[in-house]
Amino acid sequence: MATSSAAAGATPHRVARRRDPVIWIIKPLVWVLCLAPLAWLGWLVADAFFYGGRGLTANSVEFINRYLGDWALRILLVALAVTPVCVLSGWKQVVRLRRLLGLFAFFYVVLHVANYVVLDQFFNWAAIWDDIIKRWYITVGMVGLLCLIPLAITSTKGWIKKMGGCNWNRLHKAVYIAGAAGCLHFFMMRKGFQYEPLVYAGIFASLMAIRAIEPLKRKFKQR
């Protein structure tokens, strides 16, 4: 039914789009998966608000902050894994998910910072500025945020055209700085010796290593 009606009134290009699994299965799946943590947080907040649930712990502001930060870093690492997955598996279509994943990572970073500014500090700009300049882990986090803002702005097709592919690519290398800053921010925030931030840093380092090694391998093969 769907294919016949589509075939009847649509151009061949549209038919191809509808049959493209990246568009009608994988991208919606990315949307659902990336919004699921936020939906869960929404449920925890509603549960706490209406039913006195304790899912947000005794310190809800801190819990929300950690939760959003965790997911921002996780999705950023998934976005950074797209290129290595493409290189290693040869599945080229995966690259089409990169922008969406990057924007979702940025989305969670913005929520994380918004929670900090609104609920944690309640717009106390003096205290926020104090944090940024005096507390190194917040300084590092801010560097990450500042790297991601221009990338989010220039993520549209229009901007790629305007800047030219070469310049655009060069600018978007800043995501590596953001990834490093995110991992370092997490590592510095934890007290004592803890494995969890090292796992994130290790994943980031591996993803960067694959990027560095693959072009070398190709060069070697060509000779």
Partner: peptide, 19 residues
């Protein structure tokens, strides 16, 4: 006396939102 991680001039009382 400030701490490298937390400003010590204010605190959040558990059960409250604002410091």
């Amino acid at each position: 006396v400030r701490h490298p991680r937390w400003s010590q001039d204010s605190e959040r009382r558990i059960g409250e939102i604002f410091k």
